[in-house]
Structure formats: C-alpha cells, structure tokens
C-alpha cells in the first residue's frame, strides 16, 4: 500500500534521472555535467573520505546547529507566549533577522569564530531558528481560549495548563518546523563549509570544484540530499507515533 502510494514519486524521480543521464551523455563533458552513473561511481570511489571524514563533519555541524536552534526557538516561543511585552519586543526583531543575507555575512563568522565548527554552526542556527521559533509560537497560540478557561475553572495552575494543554497542542507545529529545519540546517552547514573549513561535504565539494571534477562536486551534494531525506523520514516516523491523534481530530 505504502509503495503504491509512493509509486508516482518514484517514477517521476527515475524519469528525471533518466533525462539527466541522456542530457549528460549528449553534452559529453563530465566537468560540466556528469551523468548520474558517473556520480554514483565517484561516490563509490570516494567512499572512504566521504563517509568517514566529511559526512560525519557536516552531520555534526547540522546536529549541533539543529539542537541549538530547537532550544533557542522553543525558549523564544515560550517567552513570547507567556509575556506580551517580550512578544512585542522580540517578534519584529526575529522577523528582521531573516532579512539578513546570511551567505553574504558568513565569511565574517569565519573571521570571528575561526575555521572550527562554530562558524558553520552559527550559519546553520541563523537559518533554522526562525521557522522553529515562529511555528512553535503559532502552536502555543493555537490553543482555544475556552479550553484554557475550562482548565482554570477545574483549578489547574498556569504551569499545568502549559504542560497539559499548550505543549501537546503545539506538537504538530513543532514537528512541521523540525521537518523544515533539518534540510535548512544541512544547507546552512554546507554553506558554512563552502566559505571556509577544513572538512565537511561543503568543503569537499568546493575542493572538487577547484579540480574541475564535476562528478566529485555532485557526489557530496547527493550524500547531503540523502542525509536530509533520511533525517526527515525519521522525524516523520516519530511524528506519526507521537501525534497519531492529529489524523483523528
């Protein structure tokens, strides 16, 4: 049933790969457009550095960036939900942060924080904390006032209302935000590595670029995409398990 449901997407993806293969074969210049087969061969040839050095490096930056974004996003959302003053003070500032061209100022992060992981983590955090903050904030605001009032009449404290009403009601919003944030965090990490790093898939892709190795540029990009898809699949499975009630509402 699940395979049948996904069949259209699988067929579309295979068609696109086939089209890519044909175009690449017509151009016949791997440094401009390598074919999917050439990219697959390159991944196999470079499996050692790709999977033991660069993928773990990028995933570490992604994970640290994501954890910081989640903690920061939830904290900001909760503060804005509880205190109207902080909502009025912070919300416009948070929205403004999204107008900053992160790519343009990312080289500064390397200047400030060096070539270690923190300059890349900062790029990932700047890109991902926004959707998490805004979605969790919307989730906390989504609870019905009448539910809150009913709980008050039962004698539940503000903290109990937060734990028993607001958090469960917010979970669907939180999972949507994390599903959005995971690919963004991976992109942020790779972008940071492009601008200055000693390891990571972004750094590896840039190095292959200088060698005019088209398949070598694509190989880490494919690995990045697969990592993002796997992470989103894991989160979706977790979401299905934890908030099965959403389908039933």
């Amino acid at each position: 049933m699940r395979v049948k449901k996904r069949l259209p997407a699988i067929i579309t993806a295979l068609c696109l790969l086939f089209l890519w293969q044909i175009i690449a074969m017509c151009i016949n210049a791997a440094y401009i457009l390598p074919s999917p087969v050439q990219v697959a061969i390159k991944i196999w040839e470079l499996k050692e550095p790709l999977f033991t050095v660069h993928t773990p490096a990028t995933l570490l930056v992604t994970l640290v960036g994501l954890v910081i974004s989640i903690v920061l996003g939830i904290a900001l959302a909760v503060i804005m939900d509880r205190y109207e003053f902080w909502e009025r003070a912070l919300y416009p500032v948070i929205v403004t942060t999204q107008t900053i061209p992160v790519t343009a100022i990312a080289p500064l992060f390397v200047l400030w924080l060096g070539y270690g992981i923190w300059s890349k983590v900062l790029v990932a955090v700047l890109i991902t904390f926004f959707p998490i903050t805004i979605s969790v904030h919307d989730g906390l605001k989504s609870t019905k006032r009448e539910n809150e009032e009913l709980m008050k009449t039962m004698g539940l404290s503000s903290l109990q209302i937060f734990l028993k009403l607001k958090i469960p009601a917010c979970l669907p919003y939180f999972f949507s935000a994390v599903k959005m944030a995971v690919p963004l965090s991976i992109i942020g990490a790779a972008m940071g590595e492009w601008l200055g790093a000693q390891s990571g898939l972004g750094y590896f892709s840039k190095r292959m670029m200088t060698q005019l190795d088209g398949a070598g540029v694509f190989a880490p990009v494919v690995v990045l995409a697969v990592c993002a898809m796997l992470a989103v699949a894991v989160i979706t499975a977790l979401e299905r398990k934890l908030i099965a009630w959403r389908k039933e509402v």
Binding site: K144, E146, N147, L150, T153, K164, L165, P168, I243, W245, R246, E248, V249
Partner: peptide, 12 residues
C-alpha cells in the same frame, strides 16, 4: 464545576 457548551475534550 463547569460544563461548557462544546465538549472541549482533548483530542490527544
């Protein structure tokens, strides 16, 4: 003890 117009049962 208050019973509202809508049941307001928590779906989760």
């Amino acid at each position: 003890a208050f019973m509202p117009q809508k049941d307001l049962l928590l779906p989760w």
